[in-house]
Design a protein around this nucleic acid. Structure first.
Length: 277
DNA sequence: CCCTACCCCTGGGGGC
DNA sequence: TGCCCCCAGGGGTAGG
């Protein structure tokens, strides 16, 4: 489930559980994730005090006292499950941390996620973070920056926005949502979005992500579901997974032909053909 | 260089 | 009830 808002929510939840605390025990139950986990990962985590957290795009960085950071990506199916220490391990729990009487597990059935250690002083030089585009919620994400990144690109804007080198953290859901908000067709060539349309797109992306984060943060106490799952929240998608429904900008079926679903570079895109151009 | 297609992996849902 | 196919929120790499 994780795109930027979900990753942000998960990170805040992890911070509330782990910041300033010592990891009493770390167990790596499966090292063969998207990339092999580094040898010695569990040993490095065990006994370490957690200094703080940071998010970069869809990556979480957990800073340890002593100079290393844990780099975590949730992939397509990654979740954090929190419960009491001593709980029997569930299926697909690849990394399990214990701090005091709390157990924190990384569960990832598809194993598209990954874990790595990186020196804290050079986190952004990690091969998976280097080359990543601007954070969409930071001041560096400007009309000019987005325009420059899209200029000359002969690919649909949908594909360009999924490219983490253009902007960091958007995924398949929020790209559709942001393009709907900006009233831009996902099929439009990226190059033709540079300029005035990019100026619409920047606030649309910001607002889409900010609202999603607010929904995640406000709907859960400590961001933990009764099930123990961290970072899940109610969705309020306007177009994603709403094929055939009338979009909220078109008053009724008379003017709206219904939200369309198309496949772009192998993945579903949802949009309104009337209001998005 | 730029772009699309495919691949990694498991599980859930719908149709038959 | 069972089986089979399609689909899924990510992203790296191969090949045109």
């Amino acid at each position: 489930m994780p795109e930027l808002p979900e990753v942000e929510t998960v990170m805040r939840g992890l911070a509330s559980q782990l910041e300033g605390r010592v990891i009493d025990r770390a167990e790596l139950r499966r090292p063969d994730l998207r990339f092999p986990c580094p040898p010695g990962l569990a040993a490095r985590l065990t006994g370490a005090r957690v200094a703080g957290f940071r998010r970069r795009g869809k990556y979480i960085l957990m800073r340890l006292e002593g100079g290393d950071s844990l780099l975590l990506h949730l992939g397509m199916s990654g979740r954090i499950v929190i419960g009491p220490a001593g709980t029997i391990p569930g299926l697909h729990e690849h990394l399990v941390l214990r701090t005091g009487d709390t157990r924190i597990a990384l569960q990832d059935p598809r194993r598209f996620g990954c874990l790595d250690l990186v020196p804290t002083a050079s986190e952004d030089a990690h091969r998976l973070l280097a080359g990543m585009g601007p954070e969409p919620l930071s001041p560096t994400f400007t009309d000019a920056a987005l325009s420059a990144a899209l200029a000359g690109r002969r690919t649909p804007v949908k594909a360009a926005l999924l490219d983490q080198r253009i902007v960091a953290g958007l995924g398949n859901i929020y790209v559709s949502e942001a393009l709907f908000r900006a009233a831009i067709s996902p099929r439009r060539l990226a190059a033709s979005v540079a300029g005035a349309r990019a100026a619409r797109l920047v606030p649309a992306i910001r607002e889409t992500l900010t609202e999603a984060i607010a929904a995640g943060g406000s709907s859960l106490r400590d961001y933990v579901q009764p099930s123990g799952e961290l970072g899940y929240f109610q969705h309020a998608w306007k177009v994603y997974d709403r094929e055939g429904e009338a979009c909220e900008r078109c008053p009724g079926r008379a003017s709206c032909e219904g939200i369309r679903r198309v496949v772009q570079s192998g993945r579903s895109t949802f949009y309104c053909g009337r209001t998005q151009r």
